[in-house]
Design a protein around this nucleic acid. Structure first.
Lengths: 335, 335
DNA sequence: CCGCATGATGTAATCGTTTGCAAACCTACC
DNA sequence: GGTAGGTTTGCAAACGATTACATCATGCGG
């Protein structure tokens, strides 16, 4: 590192071999004889040589990194998924590039950009709202994997059974005695929103009930929207006694606003969230929630991605990760 | 994208110019005449050509990405800083690589690896606990910037005045009437822990008081450690009436555990946190907290990094970001 | 002792750009 | 018309690795 960066040539000269041999020693050690290998490794250690990844990647026609497109990096829900992926990728020699689709100047073009720019060897989408135009029926370009969300196309995805998650929540309310059940949805058009909403409706139907429109509050997965839903709920003459929230953040915002209005959870209203983010266990009351194993989702998404890259395939089987209802104190029998 | 990737050569042939001219048209448009520029751009549009970043980076002797080393990616505190940085970087044509120092197999070697491997053009550390051996007195390698934390060395850092932050919290307690003030610390050895602890001690001293040892609870910035501190607090015969927590997560864990034990905040104990993470406003009660502007910290860290890269310098002036006390309902006069 | 398979190494082309240098061109002024 | 000065352009050499192909021993069966 003193004057000039040392390269494979310097090692070759030092070890008295050709650059080809040095390269082989480094990438396919089995191909060179023990003696030369030792000589090369000796020279490598002596000089502190490091391969130039850019050059290697250029020659190998790859980039060495995988990009994750996250709807909102600031959302704690995603960071743990990223964490799981980062571990898998770095072990395989790939770096994880993150990009926030929310802060991007032109989100609509962002996906297309990453697909075509050749900046990454793979693309993990945590946001299915992106325009899918470029994704269907591709024959070239980097593989794409979806985590949590999914698209109608045949893109591989790592998801939980969101319909079942909603069903579990609703049944838990029902078994606890609730018959008046409301729902705070995610953003309109989102697949998670739709399937959870559908889960609620279908489950209530099996139970001989139905989801009332005035008990369906629109949200966007964020804290504030939960608080807004609480305002709506408070304004109702005829309130549901239980509210299933499509995200823990919204549940948190909902509970906070309800309690700030002087009512208690679960006395006045029972609440179930979705995700089981870390803070949920520490809220007052502790939040009952449908847990998504986030680290695992990230890890499996990473694995699927690596397998696709290895197989040079644009498709792979999707995976479904099991859910679990975590019971805490935010659910109690209705008054 | 059909048969073979198109390169600068194809554009050159199509536009009837040399590859040099194509390259110049793309990177220094002012250098070529309007007519040839048009011809080249025409060919570019016609073919859908995209530059190969790997090749460009190789030639330009850079990597095009900057890595952020995060102590715990899953911590919501960091994700917003990353978000701020990612914005600045992507605007400047750099990608943000993230690495979790907690899940890494050998965190001690990780920093050294990123410094020497030449994988990134710059390094942002959100974790000053890393071994600093390689960082001092360097004459080569990528620039390093610290965000939030800092080291004794002359590395540039973007920080808040943690001593003052603690002072503000303590004075707020004092003005509200509290004379019995406790503190939950961060992990031992951490610079934030130390300076906030020092801020508490120094401020109490100016007020003619002192921080009692049995009112100083060890934490690690995490939720669970706040809950553990609450257990200690509950077990005390002689309790402080106010507790300043070195992170919002700990405050959240503390409040949750206290309330789960049947006591109310702020009736039984007033609490102030540090960071003002998003959820703090929605807790019951709303958490009074010393706000760190996280997006701004990330943004400024990014700017400093870019300026160092541009100037090819390993040093830059540090920056200090102002704090703000956000008053909510977790502080009330003592019983 | 010859021929051939096997294994280890070297030579040189290649990956797709950028850029120093020199040539070509143009303008304008004497 | 010649020349100086300024733009535009092209040629070809990097950048630092990988790898197809050629080469050269070596060993072994016949």
């Amino acid at each position: 590192m003193n004057g000039k960066a040392i390269g494979i040539k310097d090692i070759a000269r030092l070890a008295g071999v050709s650059t080809a041999t040095v390269s082989r020693t480094l990438s396919q050690p089995g191909m060179v004889s023990t003696s030369t290998r030792d000589a090369v490794m000796q020279a490598v250690r002596a000089t502190g040589y490091r391969v130039n990844h850019t050059a290697r990647n250029l020659r190998r026609q790859r980039t060495g990194s995988i990009v994750a497109l996250v709807p909102r990096l600031a959302n704690p829900f995603f960071s743990q998924i990223l964490s799981g992926m980062a571990g898998v990728f770095s072990a395989a020699g790939y770096g994880l590039l993150v990009a926030d689709t929310e802060v991007a100047p032109d989100p609509a073009r962002q996906l297309s950009h990453y697909i075509h720019s050749g900046i990454a060897d793979g693309l993990v989408l945590l946001d299915a709202r992106l325009p899918r135009g470029d994704l269907c029926n591709r024959v070239a370009g980097p593989p794409v994997v979806l985590a949590c969300e999914w698209m109608d196309d045949d893109l591989p995805s790592i998801t939980v059974d969101n319909v079942e998650g909603a069903a579990v929540a609703v049944r838990h309310f029902w078994q606890t005695g609730h018959r008046r059940i409301g729902h705070i949805t995610g953003p309109a058009g989102n697949v998670l929103t739709e399937s959870r909403l559908h889960g609620v409706r279908a489950t209530l139907a099996t139970l001989g009930s139905a989801l009332r429109d005035d008990w369906t509050f629109p949200g966007d997965f964020g804290l504030e929207s939960g608080a807004r839903a609480a305002a709506e709920w408070l304004a109702l003459k005829d309130r549901p006694t239980a509210v299933f929230c499509s995200s823990d953040e919204m549940a948190c915002g909902f509970i906070g606003a309800v309690q700030r209005a002087g009512l208690r959870v679960p006395d006045a209203v029972s609440v179930i969230g979705f995700d089981d983010i870390e803070v949920s266990a520490h809220l007052t009351p502790g939040l009952t929630s449908v847990r998504q194993p986030r680290t695992r989702i990230g890890r499996e998404a990473g694995e699927v991605m690596l397998s696709m890259i290895a197989a040079q395939s644009l498709t792979a089987p999707s995976r479904r990760i099991p859910l679990e209802l975590i019971r805490r104190a935010s659910v109690a029998p209705p008054p």
